[in-house]
Design a protein around this nucleic acid. Structure first.
Lengths: 348, 348
DNA sequence: GAAAGCTTTTAGATCGATCTAAATGAACAG
DNA sequence: CTGTTCATTTAGATCGATCTAAAAGCTTTC
């Protein structure tokens, strides 16, 4: 008897076709929801699929159809909540397009990024969303494009010739500076850390431009450690010799959280006699005390934009490159206050 | 002329083989580092691969070899830093085994989990690491195992018959209770939230057991909102009628962060006249003020353990199921202090 | 110098889908 | 009743690797 009830091998399209009394080709059309098949045939095939517990074999399909329904995502760091939120935004959009995300971590190292990118190609991803590691050369991205690998840069823009999704960091900096200036602050520090890349430069330039256009000195830029635990202990770096700042703008919320702790340790009251603005507005900002005033860059939104950009490019590989830059929003909470009288007098 | 210089189609093994004057089969052996090929032949083939810019086609290989070098990871939520760290641990180990991670988010919903699991099967993952959505039935996992899909549960244990990696939450709770008791606290609240699952039950039971074995009342269990922003405003729930707690143990660090803010709002000084212990010890714990005393569960370690468990099972599908449970560590910082005199008197 | 044993190489079938181009059948016009 | 059109269905080739089993070379042994 040709019966084979016990778990033998996997159920394939041939099994389904046989069961439904149609050919392999017709069964294939049913799966792909082609309008070519008749209604009753379709029903019969679907019934057979259900009865046999058929599972589509994407791998086999991809081989022939050159579409893997798979998207690579490369981030420099997973433990930073900002990237986790970005990833979440990407995943949601990719998922709802019926595709899956293959994840990789570059550790912000170009060599690892090379490796990982190669692996993505081997796995035949349809496209890649990458937050380029610091130091990535434009040539690297161009080569990938030459290899016909659809690509989107996210957060950091290396090349103008490749799609990009990010946020308007410079405008965000202007919002922060304007707000502090409106509270009377004139000596404002900028606390930074981390590797240098386009997002870094954009923020620094945004800060400097905003300061200069108000006639303020943009040169109080302070470098801090990467690890959040060490940032607090480095808060004293804000107060070197010369003029003392009455407010600080942070490169990101990690720094803001760290400095908030460090300023507390020094006996300063954030929001009262010292002002602090974060950047990114991660969910923790709401939970700090005083609540952190922060420039929201919307990582989930950026992720979604990047994913949509990639889907669009998949649909039309030769469209010219696009930039999708979302607006930042200044979220005013409690960590800033009017400049203290004493500080004003000090700076005279 | 049979020359085809311009970018035509992708370079395949046949091209490489032709170039190196060997057969397809031999070229394949070289790629797979088989010891069967001679040294000079190997060199010739590798040379040809380099010259042609050959990229291995994993998809084609998988079809024949039934190995996709792909692992599915399903988490309930990406924006929670705890899961991001878990994911980071998984990714590192999977990556170093030469495989890639396909990521999916179940949103802690069983229906979505079903969908996502189906998609993983379609993509032919070699195995899956899943943090089961609250309400997952053991039958669900057993069915997957029946389908010959190697499986590891992480953080939440639904079935004893499936590999599991987690942390000893009950022991962690005991550490927290013991520590607070040693500081003189007798009325200790337990702040919880979120969906009910094994990790939830283990923590609650651990708390109750530890309290009871010291003759303390374990019934002060307080439910709080999910969103971190709302937790602070719910801090008053700790102080209902009846006896007032002098300390609180939190189900996780999200609650700890939220409550710390809420207690601050109520004018309580955490670490002085009220004690607070977190659970998980995420990186932010270090940055809070006062620094958060927290029970470390080591998400990165757990993730690594889960990944290794899966790799082991891939190597030996019939080995009996294992449990890998790592020890928790109480990280003492600044958020707890000896019970205040006034509170002691009040509770008499 | 032929048989045996070993290492190295290969032809051809195969995995499970999709694609192409052609066949089938029904409906309709002349 | 035949030729044409249109909607369905299908056989067979194909994607790019791996696997099996056998062939080809090369030593070694008697």
């Amino acid at each position: 008897m040709p019966f084979e009830d016990k778990k033998k091998s996997r159920v394939t399209l041939v099994d389904v076709a046989r069961r439904a009394n149609v050919s392999r080709a017709t069964a294939s059309l049913v799966i792909r929801k082609s309008p070519l098949v008749g209604a009753d045939t379709r029903a019969r095939v679907e019934e057979a699929m259900r009865e046999l517990g058929y599972v589509y074999n994407m791998g086999a399909a991809r081989l022939r159809a050159e579409r893997s329904h798979t998207v690579g995502v490369i981030v420099p760091n997973l433990t930073n909540p900002f990237f986790a939120e970005l990833l979440s935004g990407i995943e949601a959009v990719i998922d709802s397009a019926g595709m899956v995300v293959i994840l990789a971590n570059s550790g912000d190292l170009v060599e690892r990024q090379d490796m990982v990118m190669r692996r993505m190609r081997e796995h035949g991803v349809d496209g890649v969303i990458v937050c380029p590691a610091a130091g990535t050369e434009p040539a690297f991205l161009h080569q990938l494009a030459d290899w016909d690998l659809p690509l989107v840069q996210v957060l950091r823009q290396i090349s103008e010739e490749v799609d990009y999704a990010g946020s308007d960091y410079a405008a965000g900096m202007r919002q922060a500076v304007d707000y502090l200036a409106s509270l009377g602050h004139r000596t404002i520090a900028f606390a930074v850390h981390g590797p240098i890349h386009s997002a870094y430069r954009e923020r620094v330039e945004g800060f400097c431009d905003a300061m200069q256009s108000r006639g303020l000195d943009p040169n109080m830029i302070v470098g801090l450690p990467i690890q959040i635990g060490e940032i607090a202990d480095a808060a004293h770096l804000l107060f070197g010799e010369g003029e003392q700042p009455t407010a600080v703008i942070c490169f990101n919320d990690v720094i803001a959280l760290g400095l908030s702790a460090g300023l507390y340790d020094r006996g300063l009251k954030v929001g009262e006699n010292f002002s602090l603005i974060g950047f990114d507005d991660v969910t923790d900002a709401e939970a700090m005390r005083p609540r952190l005033t922060s420039v929201s860059t919307g990582p989930v939104t950026i992720g979604g934009n990047a994913a949509r950009l990639l889907l669009d490019r998949l649909a039309d590989p030769i469209r010219p490159p696009r930039r999708v830059v979302n607006e930042t929003v200044l979220h005013i909470r409690q960590s800033c206050g009017p400049v203290a009288i004493s500080a004003l007098q000090q700076s005279r």
